[in-house]
Design a protein around this nucleic acid. Structure first.
Lengths: 182, 182
DNA sequence: TAAAACTGGTTTCATTTTTAAACTGGTTGC
DNA sequence: GCAACCAGTTTAAAAATGAAACCAGTTTTA
């Protein structure tokens, strides 16, 4: 199995230091963990095959299985049976995972400013940065509804934050497919 | 040499995707890069030996050399000769590196809330989160002075943000050493 | 009802990365 | 002239990654 030693170290609380930066790096400081959480958070991918086949970056199934196991052990996500299918597992963000939204917002803003992003893939980051903390809070509340089963707010209607970001992404793709004239 | 393939891939702009989250993960998504930048940013460690011997987490010299090389190639830090010593190199944050401050603030806040941090090592993260964007801006301006040689603001005096965070850290350590009575 | 497709993974093996430790060639201060 | 200091490099073992094939049970489809 992959990562046996590091996983064991984490589970046994054998940390390199008690620094919050270091501890966060120990939890999500690798090439895949944040990408997996991103797909759950912004892409609403909740099943193994969705995460595997929908992965833009092409994660391998053994790595995905390992990361899901580690993120679950860390309490960033949780795993439950999907009642619709005996073999299906559904992965959800925990409150701990949901509160990574501001981290994603800042990372997205930094990456969009300094790295060679594509327009369609950075539109979500752009909108999330522009929306600021109020939008992040709304997004987190939406995630609590879809991932934690929190009761929906009866006073609001229409698409949630994730759907609005997704629609913005699709609008850019559609404009690009139109030949860039519009 | 370590990481030859990944380094080459980065330098040749062979990215897994154009997503800002993914690209950021490709740049700093490993167990050491953010720790090195943290020590430069908050600990004002500018030389190889300072980073090596001062490393709380115990980085190995070959890994440190590799990360400094990669971060330099990515433009997050820069390297210059230290005029005081023919062999001494001085590493500085670039503007790209300085603008990681909000990312560190969010990561620090998340880590402090959800991970087993120690009090003395999380006081900086706590103050940075409480200070919010105005404090981050002040901190970045200070870093531009010390790392980029920007002209100091003649209207302000007293310790800069890093020094104030450091003093807060030392105050906690002193209180702890006093037996926790105060 | 039999076959096909789908479920969440595991296994295997080659490659890449990390790690600790020893080591290097040159520089500086005493 | 010698010890301490400088930025790393070298070596070899351990660990992590990655691609691909594979698996047994479940559900859908023809």
């Amino acid at each position: 199995m992959c990562n046996q030693n590091f996983l064991e170290a984490i589970l046994q609380d054998q940390h390199r230091s008690g620094c919050p930066i270091n501890l966060t790096v120990e939890v999500v400081g690798d090439k895949w963990s944040l990408v997996v959480v991103r797909d759950m958070m912004f892409g609403n991918r909740r099943h193994f095959r969705e995460l595997l086949n929908g992965s833009m970056e092409g994660i391998a199934s053994n790595i995905l299985a390992d990361r899901l196991r580690r993120l679950t052990a860390e309490g960033v996500i949780s795993k439950a049976d999907d009642p619709s299918h005996k073999q299906k597992a559904i992965y959800s963000l925990t409150e701990k995972g949901i509160e990574l939204v501001p981290v994603f917002a800042m990372i997205g803003a930094w990456g969009s400013k300094w790295l060679p992003v594509t327009e369609e893939l950075s539109i979500r980051a752009k909108l999330l940065a522009e929306g600021g903390p109020p939008l992040w809070e709304e997004f987190m509340d939406d995630l609590r509804i879809t991932h934690l089963g929190a009761p929906p707010d009866p006073n609001r209607s229409g698409p949630d934050v994730r759907e609005r970001l997704q629609a913005a992404y699709e609008a850019v793709v559609a404009r690009q497919a139109g030949g860039g004239r519009n």
